[in-house]
Nucleic acid binder design. Sequence first.
DNA 1: ACAAATAACCAAAGCGCTTTGGAGATTTTC
DNA 2: GAAAATCTCCAAAGCGCTTTGGTTATTTGT
Lengths: 343, 343
Amino acid sequence: MNLKQLSEHLGLSQTTVSRALNGYPEVSDATRKKVLTAARLNNYSPNTRAKGLATGRAWAIGHIIPISTKHEMVNPIFGDFIAGAGESYAAAGFDMTLRLAEDDHIETLYREMAAKRNVDGILVQGPAMDDERVHILQDLGMPFAVHGRASSATTAYNWLDVNNSRAFERATNFLLDLGHQRIALINGLEHMDFAYRRRGGYETALSARGLAIDPQIMRAHEMTERYGYTSTRDMLSQPNAPTAFLVSSIIVAIGVRRAIEEAGLKMGQDISVITHDDDISYFRNGEEIPLFTATHSSVREAGRILAQILIDQITNPTAPPVHRLLEAQLMVGQSTGPAPGRT
Amino acid sequence: MNLKQLSEHLGLSQTTVSRALNGYPEVSDATRKKVLTAARLNNYSPNTRAKGLATGRAWAIGHIIPISTKHEMVNPIFGDFIAGAGESYAAAGFDMTLRLAEDDHIETLYREMAAKRNVDGILVQGPAMDDERVHILQDLGMPFAVHGRASSATTAYNWLDVNNSRAFERATNFLLDLGHQRIALINGLEHMDFAYRRRGGYETALSARGLAIDPQIMRAHEMTERYGYTSTRDMLSQPNAPTAFLVSSIIVAIGVRRAIEEAGLKMGQDISVITHDDDISYFRNGEEIPLFTATHSSVREAGRILAQILIDQITNPTAPPVHRLLEAQLMVGQSTGPAPGRT
DNA sequence: ACAAATAACCAAAGCGCTTTGGAGATTTTC
DNA sequence: GAAAATCTCCAAAGCGCTTTGGTTATTTGT
């Protein structure tokens, strides 16, 4: 059933039917009611492509997932972030259009999407320090919003981020207060903006207490369980082994925990661990007494908010860019305790 | 730049330019070359909506993510599956359109998507035993493919599944051969088709050796780490505690392992564990010696293949439905060993 | 050398919607 | 009671593409 058929069926013009459905005032209440019920009965929904052609709006937001040939890794937070964003999209009637793209084709793809006009805006995830995507999108005049920040960008744009440096500074201080002096950092890849900022927070806290920054107990890598395991195992076997670990993801923290126990030590007693916790739905940390002491921030909530920011920008293109900095909660769990030999 | 502008720029008709770009033969090689370079130079890509309107094809595949209000859980395999499917879509020039939908709105949404014609087909994930989605889609005449099977469906449709019953039967036999007599099952929700089949395999293997099926050591629940932990902890404290665990997901297995170690036992010695392993990219089990003995099957590969099946179906609608049953590999890792007291 | 076939191009219709620019009919204003 | 304003509706253009049904040259067949 299309508009033409529906309007013939009703004995009205397409104009009137269209206006009735879209809530324009030039239609009597009686007619509108008739049109609406007829539409429902006949299961009519306007053809998206025709509507898009006519209005110049795609009613879709693009998410481009970078897929490097080197490490074909899917971000564990991807699903939850998408779920959050999807909630906002669904509420506003937008679809989410996903594309995979190899790292070096992203610019081409952005330009292509802009030319094809099949999305009204783009949501950028996982920005690197010197991320070029921000520049490209600004250049193309395509509305966009970033989950995280790209430090290299000079002009304003929409973003939402967790206060990563503050979170890791607080976590480090928490460990220092417990008497830990050798605190290891198991970070994400440090060309990523969030990881860079986290290291910053860690270093700030150490420096503030006059402690040296020791590259021997600092790692940066893609955040897998195995990475947590191997790097912790290695560091624990060093002569001057750390008594605490600051970890960038709960996935990695699971590996850290495995190495600790395999070494015959007890997490929360012999070794303390604080991890960042994105509140991944299949790995909740926070029920009852959390397993890990963590800097907690819901990535799903982030998706929800950021998607709304982007929708607002699309709806109202002249509004100034919006920034949103979320503070992570420091939640105490079972994985931290006083440094050994200090009761 | 649109077709009209491009054709004016070239001094050709829109017809000729369109045909040149789409590879029709009614165009001389010289003209075609001219058109193609001009298109590249001017960064021309046809407007998706206009093209779709004219061809009746959306060049997009729909994925509907059910989001129940009860348990707002995002499937951990979601990301990797999407990544696999996305590879096939990208290669064939299709976009992926995601929508979230609450359980009881799925039918409405399917009908709406069919009416709006903004997807050419739908990929169904996580079918339940009596999944209604298959019926609805068959009813709507919308091409679709299912990851898994819906046992209730009577007529043929496209699906790809892992041989779950065979996998769990083999895994159970493997444990039995090691001398284990008390084997616990930590399954997914058993109204889900895959979980039902896995239990079938487990029970078949036990029955074949004349062993009783004991509900005391069988659990079914949403597959979180916490679920693995609590159910294992409970079962280990039972009088006649199991010596082996058969687990439905590596996420759950991590929780199982936590409970085992917390009880002061050693996985692979005191207690054996076999888990199903979907080869999730951030939690690889298989490097060097796998942590867990596992029934292994790549969900990313599954996404890749199934997406291709759906594309084929869309391209060639009269072809008969395709079924594909993948066998899981039984990979031996560190988590299994002979039953205690049996060297 | 002439009809038939082929090559290379084009004008215009059509996909299903929104929106502009009216046109009657009814109500309000003075 | 005539002019103005307000309602309620409609015909037709336009969004950017594909495709049908030509037309005009150029080759081919005999």
